[in-house]
């Protein structure tokens, strides 16, 4: 990890999840009872209960065996899913921002006791850094049978099976023509927490056309020749806003937390964008 990125990461931590977590024993409060020191409730003793949890003081007062229940402490599983399609490398800054976000989320999850996995959306291995166009993973998954049926039917789901009750972070630009709602719902299904991050390049938010331009789709090589008319840019921005609103609505509907990030320096992404949107909070 780059020192600059590491320094920025250490200033923040992942925001508290809205729902209790599940997972291996750890230092995060689980959704059920467990072996932490935090008292949660009493219940009647049943044979087999750990005698060390019998509340003897209550028995002295009521002559009834009561067992003290404590909050479960878990070490949650986490998956950081990165869209590695060519569109995420349309500019050098966007590609670097994607890498920074993946590393930052992995670091924040690890520092909170989780066990993050880095996965590639749509197919391929994150470690390989292979650029897989959106949709290619469907054919690859169907051919290998490695992915579950829902994953094989999705363009954003990784091929690897996802752990139940895991924290899932999906980072993509979501600049696809089809509706991302089904993918988000599948990712949210069985997840303890789903975080959706839409990463866009600054030019994608504020495009500028200096004269007639041939736009080349980095995914399928499609070409579109456009004039530099302001109404074209305005029309593009209007459609992008509608796409963002639709995506945010789909994320909310899936119970996910959503954040839109403009590619830039790590400190600016964290402080100016993730922090105001509640995805991270100051470490101190």
């Amino acid at each position: 990890m780059r020192p600059e990125l590491e320094r920025a990461c250490l200033r923040y931590r992942l925001g508290a999840p809205a729902r209790p977590l599940a997972g291996r024993a750890g230092d995060r409060i689980g959704r059920g009872t467990g072996a932490s020191l935090e008292f949660m409730d009493f219940r009647d003793y049943v044979p087999g209960d750990d005698l060390r949890h019998v509340d003897w003081r209550s028995y002295a007062r009521t002559e009834q065996y009561k067992v003290r229940l404590f909050r479960e402490e878990v070490s949650p599983a986490a998956e950081v899913i990165a869209d590695l399609s060519p569109s995420m490398a349309v500019t050098e800054g966007k590609e670097r921002a994607l890498r920074d976000l993946v590393e930052a989320f992995a670091l924040w999850i690890a520092r909170s006791g989780g066990h993050p996995r880095r996965l590639a959306a749509g197919g391929g291995r994150f470690e390989d850094g292979e650029r897989v166009p959106i949709g290619a993973g469907v054919a690859a998954g169907a051919a290998t049978g490695a992915a579950a049926a829902p994953a094989a039917a999705s363009t954003l789901l990784p091929l690897e099976p996802l752990r139940p009750r895991s924290v899932r972070v999906l980072i993509s630009d979501f600049l696809v023509e089809h509706d991302s709602g089904p993918d988000l719902r599948r990712l949210a299904s069985g997840a303890a927490e789903l975080v959706v991050v839409q990463l866009l390049d600054p030019w994608e938010l504020q495009p500028s056309l200096d004269g007639p331009t041939a736009l080349l789709d980095c995914e399928d090589g499609g070409r579109l020749d456009v004039d530099a008319a302001p109404r074209i840019v305005a029309s593009y921005r209007e459609r992008l806003a509608r796409l963002g609103a639709s995506l945010e609505g789909a994320a909310r509907a899936a119970g996910a937390r959503f954040a839109r990030v403009t590619a830039g320096a790590p400190e600016r992404m964290f402080a100016d964008q993730l922090l105001p949107q509640g995805l991270v909070e100051p470490a101190a």
């Binding site: 630009d173 004039d227 992008l240």
Partner: peptide
């Protein structure tokens, strides 16, 4: 000559309904 600057974009479909050159 029809001389166009070229630019690689991710969301080409967002430009599609714009008037062509």
């Amino acid at each position: 000559r029809r001389r166009l600057r070229q630019r690689r974009v991710a969301g080409l479909f967002l430009f599609r309904e714009g008037p062509l050159v």
